[in-house]
Computed example of a mutant assay.
Amino acid sequence: MTTQHRLWLQDLTLSAAVAGFVAVLVGFTSSVAIVFQAAQALGATAAQTSSWMWALGLGMGITSLGLSLWTRQPVLTAWSTPGAALLAGSAGLSMAEAIGAFIVCAALIMLFGVTRWFERVMDRIPLAVASALLAGVLARFGLDAVLTVQSAPLMVLVMAGAYLLGKRFMPRYAVPGVLLAGVAVAAAQGRLRLSAVDWAWAQPVWTTPVFSLAALVGVALPLFLVTMASQNLPGVAAQRASGYQTPVSASITVTGLASLLLAPFGGYAFNLAAITAAICMGREAHEDPAKRYTAAMMAGLFYIAVGLAGGAVVGLLVAFPRELVAAVAGLALLGTIAGGLSAALKDEKHRDAAILTFLVTLSGVSLLGIGSAFWGVVAGSAALLVARWRA
Rank of each mutant, 00 (worst) to 15 (best):
L192Q: 11
R193A: 15
R193I: 11
L194S: 10
S195K: 10
A196S: 14
A196N: 13
D198I: 12
W199H: 12
A200L: 11
A202S: 15
Q203M: 13
Q203T: 15
V205Q: 13
W206M: 13
W206G: 06
W206Q: 06
T208S: 14
F211W: 13
S212V: 09
S212Y: 06
L213I: 12
A215D: 09
V217L: 15
G218F: 03
L221V: 15
P222V: 08
P222D: 09
F224I: 05
L225C: 13
L225T: 11
L225Q: 05
V226D: 08
V226S: 10
V226K: 04
M228K: 00
M228L: 14
M228C: 03
S230H: 06
Q231S: 06
Q231N: 08
N232V: 01
L233F: 06
P234Y: 07
G235E: 02
A237W: 00
A238Y: 01
Q239F: 14
R240P: 02
A241P: 01
S242C: 12
Y244F: 15
Y244V: 03
Q245M: 09
T246G: 01
P247N: 01
V248H: 00
S249Y: 01
A250Y: 01
I252A: 00
T253N: 02
V254L: 10
V254I: 10
T255K: 00
G256D: 03
G256F: 01
G256P: 02
G256L: 02
L257P: 01
L260H: 07
L261P: 03
L261I: 15
L262M: 11
L262H: 03
L262N: 02
A263S: 14
P264A: 12
F265L: 15
A269H: 09
L272N: 01
L272S: 00
A273N: 04
A274P: 01
T276G: 00
T276A: 04
A278D: 03
I279H: 05
C280M: 05
M281C: 12
G282C: 08
R283E: 15
E284A: 15
A285F: 06
A285K: 03
A285D: 08
H286A: 13
H286G: 07
E287A: 14
D288M: 08
D288V: 11
A290V: 10
K291D: 14
Y293I: 09
A296C: 05
A296Q: 03
M297E: 02
M298F: 14
A299I: 03
A299E: 04
G300T: 01
F302W: 15
Y303E: 03
A305S: 11
V306A: 13
V306M: 13
V306T: 14
V306G: 10
L308Q: 05
G310H: 07
G311A: 15
A312D: 12
V313T: 14
V314G: 07
V314T: 12
G315T: 12
G315Q: 11
L316I: 14
A319N: 06
